[in-house]
Design a protein around this nucleic acid. Structure first.
Lengths: 215, 215
DNA sequence: CCATTATTCAATAAATCAATTGAATAATTG
DNA sequence: CAATTATTCAATTGATTTATTGAATAATGG
């Protein structure tokens, strides 16, 4: 008979996966490495933790098979074990946005602080010819996957590459998504130089997920 | 500027929701009350915990707005705050089934112990006229929602109601889903009485989710 | 082979979480 | 109003988790 020990095993096992993703630092790691494989040092720098601490969190994720590792020379590169991991993260993110007025407010206030109105959506842009879509993430993340028709202009290179950009078009930046600051900074720089600029909050990953989900 | 404190707030808030669902007992509670509102005593009995313990877990879930309460007379009835909560739970369940050979093995061994082959799927049943679909959950859960064409025969009443059942059809039982034991017990009873019986592992909730997701 | 670099391991202390117990609250019934 | 019942609260204990620190490992380049 399917007894209590069966249920205990089942819910225990699922809760172990849940526990592995239930730490803010590890959520940030997942959100970050979803864009492309990163080594421990990248992750530590991005998240502001010590290398030892980052490594420890990565081990926790690895123990539950949420991330995979690949050794390249001296470095170990971490990436998500499968697309489903990213899907679970976005599910949790969207559930929290639904349930938590606090999170919605935090995001809203950040928009106000950045002097944006509501970011545009992809639908609002589709079909417009006066728009140039900029992927301001590092080039390797762009290579791994990007929104169709986007141009790779990493934030770090944006200033030097301003001459390449069309002056008569609306420049729309995007980055790693809703919680990433790269597009904000790009827009700020562009507006300071007199360009018409804005952002969308969807990421390349969210775009990909949205286009594969119905299938 | 979107600073570290912004990210800290964001990931903290999301991790609080994750933490709330990252306990095996609370997962079991979510899985249970998804079928319909239940009072603390129901929940304590179903999960085998003390009433005080169950209440404490329910408070944890309520603090994060995952469950809603309604007072009816002396009792407080708990149910999921929204369909999205159930969706997140199934997402986590399916991710774990994907990532964890241990969970797959536990489920598989339970099937062997119950002497079933692989449970049927709804697709295999659709269109067949020699099949009678039995919802063996308590009646109130059936009332709240069920798979089309199913008949409500709660496990507790099954024995007395055997005469109602068609002897010439294949009786397919379903219950609260993959981790619920009601259908197993129903099939065992039916087979012992000489009926052709089997089960499907999809629940009324999974069915509903699957049919609303594409929309 | 030594020095360097990237990463992981191990040990600790502070914080948080879970289960248990018994008391407190609050509505209902006689 | 007293007794009963359902539920929640509060305090305790033991177990986990987190961040920090410093040492250990392992691969590479000179």
């Amino acid at each position: 008979m399917r007894s209590r020990t069966f249920k205990d095993q089942v819910y225990d096992e699922i809760s172990r996966i849940a526990r592995a993703i239930s730490n803010p630092r590890r959520l940030e790691i997942i959100d970050f490495i979803a864009n492309g494989e990163k080594c421990v040092e990248d992750i530590a720098r991005q998240t502001g933790m010590s290398i030892a601490n980052a490594s420890q969190h990565l081990q926790t994720l690895k123990k539950e098979r949420l991330v995979r590792t690949e050794k390249k020379g001296v470095q170990v590169y971490y990436s998500l074990a499968s697309r489903e991991v990213y899907r679970a993260w976005t599910g949790l993110r969207d559930l929290t946005l639904l349930l938590s007025p606090g999170l919605r407010e935090t995001v809203e206030q950040s928009r106000i602080a950045n002097d944006f109105g509501h970011p545009l959506t992809l639908e609002q842009l589709s079909g417009r010819t006066d728009v140039c879509l900029l992927d301001v993430r590092p080039e390797d993340e762009f290579q791994k996957g990007h929104i169709p028709d986007a141009v790779s202009v990493p934030l770090a290179e944006l200033e030097q590459r301003l001459p390449e950009l069309p002056k008569d078009k609306l420049l729309i930046a995007y980055c790693r998504g809703m919680f990433c600051t790269l597009a904000d900074e790009a827009v700020k720089l562009l507006q300071a130089r007199g360009y018409q600029a804005g952002k969308i909050e969807i990421s390349a990953l969210d775009y990909e997920l949205a286009s594969t989900q119905p299938a």
